[in-house]
């Protein structure tokens, strides 16, 4: 068992999940509330990481983080082949899941409820935090978990942008690949088990968040008595 890889994976996934939550929620809000021109194109672009081969994402990230990119030349951000690059890769692949899930949840909030809050004197800010967000919380949380699970499992792009330096930039999925390459099967077994367990727990949590259909539909209790 490669403990440093596990620890790095936990760190990378945690930070990436925070980024996924913040950016994903902001983008989902933008897509549901603002009718941008060409919004279908923007939505499709945001979904692209779901279907692109990891090597393609890795290549784009090399371009974005490597020499000659605005990040490096103008802002002097040099993170290629360091562990923050793994955070960037994990965020990029986890983002589409978060956007999809939370966008559906936000769109499902009845606009009549938001209008009711407006006529009751609420600011848009308060409506978002006290009405929209609590009502969309299941879908948003599901998006966070799915995005986080995807971030944890990120392999291909990470391999390309972190350089696979054991103890410094090697995350758990990459460490498994290394162990198999080096025929350390006992090591690989254990790490595969840990990964599977974490992914299973995450998906189980998402399933548990889905409301049972009859509870979601029910609006008025049939046995409530009029007085």
């Amino acid at each position: 068992m490669n403990w440093s890889a596990l620890w790095l994976s936990v760190q990378v996934t945690t930070i990436a999940t925070v980024c996924i939550t913040a950016f994903g929620l902001a983008l989902a809000l933008l897509l549901t509330r603002v009718r941008l021109p060409g919004h279908i194109v923007i939505e499709t672009l945001l979904l692209l990481p779901l279907v692109l081969p990891p090597s393609v994402i890795g290549y784009y990230l090399l371009l974005a983080l490597g020499r000659g990119s605005p990040l490096v030349e103008w802002f002097n951000v040099r993170i290629l082949f360091t562990w923050p690059a793994a955070v960037v890769a994990a965020t990029v692949v986890g983002l589409p899941l978060m956007i999809q899930s939370s966008r559906a949840a936000l769109a499902n909030v009845d606009p009549v409820l938001e209008n009711a809050a407006r006529t009751l004197g609420s600011s848009e800010w308060r409506i978002f935090w006290q009405i929209t967000l609590p009502l969309a919380r299941r879908g948003i949380l599901a998006g966070v978990i799915l995005g986080g699970a995807r971030a944890l499992g990120e392999f291909g792009a990470t391999l390309m942008v972190t350089g696979n330096i054991p103890g410094r930039t090697q995350t758990l999925p990459v460490a498994i690949y290394d162990a198999v390459q080096a025929r350390r099967y006992a090591d690989a077994h254990l790490m595969v088990l840990v990964m599977t367990g974490m992914a299973f727990a995450g998906l189980l949590w998402v399933r548990w968040l889905e409301p049972p259909p009859q509870r979601a539909r029910r609006e008025t209790r049939s046995d409530a008595v009029e007085e």
Partner: peptide, 10 residues
Amino acid sequence: ARKRRVGYVF
């Protein structure tokens, strides 16, 4: 809407 003090019963 929030400044109008107009109640709305849907």
